[in-house]
């Protein structure tokens, strides 16, 4: 997969603070069955060395919190779209997020 390590191949102690959570979303977004996998995203993300707060934010999803955790905005928007959310609702959803 261009530009990405295998899922779960990086120990929790390596990589930057933002690497694992971005890798998880990046890998999901490139998967040919991404939309189906979103329905069972807990299973997909289980292989990634995520901190508890990262996993919680991904599974929520907690859109504003994901940005705070360092998810790249392009990836966040792609993750939003994978959930079948209309693009025009994104800004309001993030703004309303606690």
């Amino acid at each position: 997969m261009s530009g990405s390590s295998s899922p779960g191949s990086s120990p929790a102690s390596t990589g930057s603070d933002r690497y694992a959570i971005n890798q998880a979303i990046f890998d999901l977004s490139l998967h040919p069955d991404a939309r189906k996998l979103v329905a069972n995203k807990a299973g997909f993300f289980a292989a990634y060395p995520l901190r508890a707060e990262e996993r919680q934010a991904l599974l929520g999803p907690e859109w504003k919190r994901l940005l705070e955790l360092g998810v790249l905005p392009n990836l966040l928007y792609r993750y939003y779209a994978l959930h079948g959310m209309p693009p025009e609702t994104f800004a309001a959803t993030v703004a309303a997020a606690g």
């Binding site: 261009s2 530009g3 990405s4 933002r18 690497y19 971005n22 890798q23 990046f26 392009n74 990836l75």
Partner: peptide
Amino acid sequence: EHVNKFFIDN
């Protein structure tokens, strides 16, 4: 580029 090819691993 919009994080389709270029990713933060490199």
